[in-house]
Lab assay of single mutants.
Amino acid sequence: DLSALRVEEVQNVINAMQKILECPICLELIKEPVSTKCDHIFCKFCMLKLLNQKKGPSQCPLCKNDITKRSLQESTRFSQLVEELLKIICAFQLDTGLEYANSYNFAKKENNSPEHLKDEVSIIQSMGYRNRAKRLLQSEPENPSLQETSLSVQLSNLGTVRTLRTKQRIQPQRTSVYIELGSDSSEDTVNKATYCSVGDQELLQITPQGTRDEISLDSAKKAACEFSETDVTNTEHHQPSNNDLNTTEKRAAERHPEKYQGSSVSNLHVEPCGTNTHASSLQHENSSLLLTKDRMNVEKAEF
């Protein structure tokens, strides 16, 4: 173990290094160091905050020279020094078990990766560091076993998940096959086929009936047209017969005018059967003409 005197000496050296690497504005270890034209180094955030307070150039807090945003430059070497100082402080805390008085939040800088452990060898070769390295080497064999167990647990979990997924996939297939086998029997399929065939026959029977009705309507229309044509021909046949009657009536009127007047009046009210309204109107006109002729003949006879 380190003596108290040596611990104090190391602590004083760390404090001196820390004062050199402090920012003059925030009085902390410089984060993202930036250098000016006057070779003074500050935190990048502190300098941008200072420049944004005034429009135009501002003055350096140490030498009062003008500073602009374009004049600022990043210093990589200074950032490396800060990183190495942080590593020294971490090693000091691990070796002594004491917390550094002016320690900052170094938890963000710590890294437990194997590459980081290899890099620590180049920091300080001390008894405390050696003991700590031995402890780490002793704890390393235990870690692979834990990793193997965790991997086995994960693989077993994956296997159970896969088996569950396969079961879920197989179950719908089985149910679907069961439904297909038990849903419709052979008799049901035959009945469905016969039902479809009967429906098709009914459709075939319905369509000819409609065509037959249309044919019957067409035949009825044709018969009505033929009947009207026969009526017209009958009226045409009746007209010459009426003319013959008129000639006979004229002759009778010349011989017996008194008797014919009474008979002509009675004939006005008689309509021949089986004739249309057109034929009756023609008869009325003929009878009126005959009456006028008879009157003329009677007057001539009187004179």
Rank of each mutant, 00 (worst) to 15 (best):
Y129T: 15
N234F: 05
Q147K: 15
S58N: 01
C273R: 14
S263I: 05
K31A: 04
E148Q: 07
L5G: 09
I123G: 12
G274R: 03
L98S: 12
R6M: 02
F78A: 15
R70S: 15
Q93W: 01
K44C: 01
P144E: 11
Y129W: 13
S75M: 15
K55F: 03
R70Q: 13
P33F: 00
K49G: 02
L86D: 06
E202T: 06
S126K: 04
V153G: 08
S197N: 09
E83Y: 01
L137D: 14
L151N: 15
K259E: 11
T160Y: 06
K134C: 09
R77A: 13
K222F: 07
S288R: 09
R295V: 05
H256C: 02
H278V: 07
R6Y: 05
F92Y: 08
R162K: 10
Q80P: 09
L81Q: 05
V7A: 03
Q201K: 10
K31E: 09
A101Q: 15
N15E: 15
Q138V: 07
E22D: 01
L137R: 13
E74V: 12
R70P: 11
L217Q: 09
E254R: 10
P272E: 15
D66N: 12
K55M: 12
T277E: 01
V82L: 00
A252T: 06
N65L: 03
I30V: 15
T76M: 04
A4W: 11
P33I: 09
K250N: 09
A133E: 00
M17A: 01
R130I: 11
G262T: 08
G159R: 04
A4M: 01
S266W: 11
N157F: 01
R165N: 07
V298F: 15
R130S: 14
F106I: 07
T166H: 08
L282C: 03
Q168G: 13
S150H: 02
L158G: 09
A4H: 06
N105K: 12
N157C: 04
S264T: 12
V34C: 05
C63S: 00
L5F: 07
Q261H: 08
Q201V: 10
D244N: 11
T163H: 06
L151D: 12
D39V: 03
Q154L: 11
A223I: 13
S79V: 04
P257A: 04
E236T: 13
Q11Y: 15
L204P: 14
S79G: 15
S3Q: 06
T166S: 11
S263N: 10
K134E: 12
E110A: 03
L137H: 13
C43Y: 00
N105R: 02
L164R: 09
Q125A: 11
R255G: 13
I67W: 01
D66W: 08
S156D: 12
Q261E: 04
P144Y: 12
L94S: 03
Q59V: 09
I30L: 09
T160H: 09
N105P: 11
I88T: 02
I88M: 06
H40V: 00
E84L: 05
K87T: 11
R165A: 06
T248S: 14
I206Q: 04
Q209I: 10
D200T: 07
V265Y: 08
Q209H: 08
S186R: 08
K55R: 10
V232D: 14
S79C: 00
E22R: 03
N267Y: 08
L48K: 02
Q147V: 09
L289P: 06
E249T: 04
L146W: 10
P33R: 01
C273Q: 07
D213E: 15
L217G: 12
T277Y: 06
L137S: 13
A16T: 04
K118Y: 10
S264V: 09
Q201P: 10
I30S: 13
S263M: 09
S152Q: 15
Q239K: 12
Q283H: 12
F42L: 02
C90Q: 14
K109Q: 08
C273Y: 14
K69W: 08
K19I: 01
L5N: 06
E140A: 03
Y260M: 12
R162P: 07
L282P: 10
N157W: 03
T248G: 11
K64E: 03
F45S: 15
V82D: 00
L50F: 15
N143D: 05
V82W: 06
Q59P: 14
S58R: 03
L85G: 05
E142F: 07
T230L: 06
Q80C: 02
S280I: 08
I124L: 06
E28A: 02
N243Q: 14
A133F: 11
S216M: 12
S75N: 15
T189L: 05
D184G: 11
L282Y: 14
H284T: 01
R169Y: 13
K293A: 09
V7T: 08
L51S: 01
T163C: 08
K44Y: 03
N52S: 10
Q138G: 11
S139F: 10
L158S: 13
K37I: 12
E148Y: 09
D213M: 07
F42D: 01
Q18S: 08
I89T: 05
E84R: 08
F92W: 04
V7S: 03
K87F: 06
S3N: 12
C26W: 00
I124P: 11
S219L: 02
R77S: 10
S113N: 02
K49H: 04
P33W: 00
Q73V: 15
Y195V: 08
I41H: 03
S219G: 04
H116Q: 15
L155E: 09
G262S: 14
L151C: 12
P257F: 12
Q18F: 07
N105D: 12
F42S: 00
N15A: 09
E258G: 10
N111D: 15
A16K: 10
K259N: 13
L137K: 12
L164C: 08
L48A: 06
L155D: 01
N276S: 09
K108V: 15
L290S: 08
K54N: 06
Q18H: 10
S58T: 03
K222H: 12
A253L: 09
Q154C: 07
N234A: 13
L203F: 10
S35R: 05
A91C: 01
T207A: 09
S113C: 10
L48V: 13
I41E: 02
Q154P: 14
N143C: 05
E299Q: 05
E148F: 02
R77L: 15
E142W: 11
L155P: 09
L137W: 07
S150W: 06
C90H: 12
F78Y: 14
E271Y: 01
S156E: 15
E142I: 13
M47L: 13
D1Y: 11
L5E: 14
P57G: 12
G210R: 03
K222P: 13
K54G: 02
Q138F: 10
K109V: 14
H284N: 09
C43V: 00
E32F: 03
N52Y: 02
R77K: 08
C60L: 01
D119G: 08
R174L: 00
Q201I: 05
T277V: 07
L151V: 11
Q154G: 13
L27W: 04
H256E: 05
T160I: 05
A253S: 04
C63M: 00
V270L: 13
S139L: 14
K192M: 13
E254T: 08
T166D: 12
P257T: 10
A16N: 12
H284M: 14
G262D: 13
G56L: 06
S122Y: 09
D119Y: 02
K54H: 04
H256A: 13
Q93D: 01
L50Q: 01
L117S: 04
G159W: 02
I124E: 10
T275V: 04
R135P: 06
I14L: 03
L158E: 14
S185L: 04
L48W: 09
P33N: 07
H256V: 13
S156R: 03
